[in-house]
């Protein structure tokens, strides 16, 4: 098929994740267009990264789009709204109708809709002016990193 994408992605260091949810706030803020992060206070946020875990076992980790080599969401989108360009899986929110088929097929549970019911996804902060992923920039513990890794 084709050569492995040698591009940077967000990777998880689960053993260092405190479960603080800062990545969720930094993501929501970076994509909000708001001037001050404090404006998020008291609001329901719709981040493109989420912290999951199991309290009992003190497991926490952050999940966002893996930007798969061969993404199933792109193949299964019934609106032709998801595509992959330059290693980044993107969604055209104008085309999306919110059927959630991508949510049904993403093996990582990485996709969730925005407040309006239309899908949104991590595009590695390439379309919001952040420069590099805000979730990683704000992580106090390097529990998520943005780097290039090879295939195992």
């Amino acid at each position: 098929m084709r050569e492995s994408d040698t591009v940077k992605r967000v990777y998880v260091n689960e053993e260092w994740c405190l479960g603080c949810h800062l990545c969720e706030y930094n993501c929501a803020f970076a994509n909000s267009g708001l001037r001050y992060m404090s404006s998020l206070k008291g609001k329901q946020i719709y981040p493109r990264i989420h912290v999951e875990g199991e309290e009992k076992d003190r497991i926490t980790f952050a999940v966002s789009c893996r930007h798969c080599e061969d993404p199933l969401c792109v193949k299964c989108c019934i609106a032709g709204a998801i595509s992959k360009e330059d290693g980044v899986v993107r969604i055209d929110r104008n085309k999306c109708v919110g059927c959630l088929t991508c949510m049904l097929v993403c093996p990582y549970g990485a996709l969730a809709p925005a407040e309006d019911g239309i899908m949104q996804k991590c595009e590695l902060c390439t379309s919001n002016g952040s420069g590099e992923p805000a979730c990683v920039k704000g992580c106090p513990n390097r529990a998520i990193v943005y780097e290039e890794r090879g295939q195992e």
């Binding site: 492995s4 994408d5 992605r9 990777y11 998880v12 260091n13 689960e14 999951e52 875990g53 199991e54 076992d57 497991i59 980790f61 999940v63 893996r66 798969c68 080599e69 093996p107 990582y108 549970g109 890794r149 090879g150 295939q151 195992e152």
Partner: peptide, 25 residues
């Protein structure tokens, strides 16, 4: 079913998660 039926990646072993979220997939 650790989350009462809701899907979570916590259902996988740490090793599987390391592959899923620490590797190129």
């Amino acid at each position: 079913f650790i989350a009462g039926g809701r899907a979570t990646n916590a259902m996988f072993s740490e090793e599987v998660r390391r592959k899923k979220f620490g590797g190129v997939v």
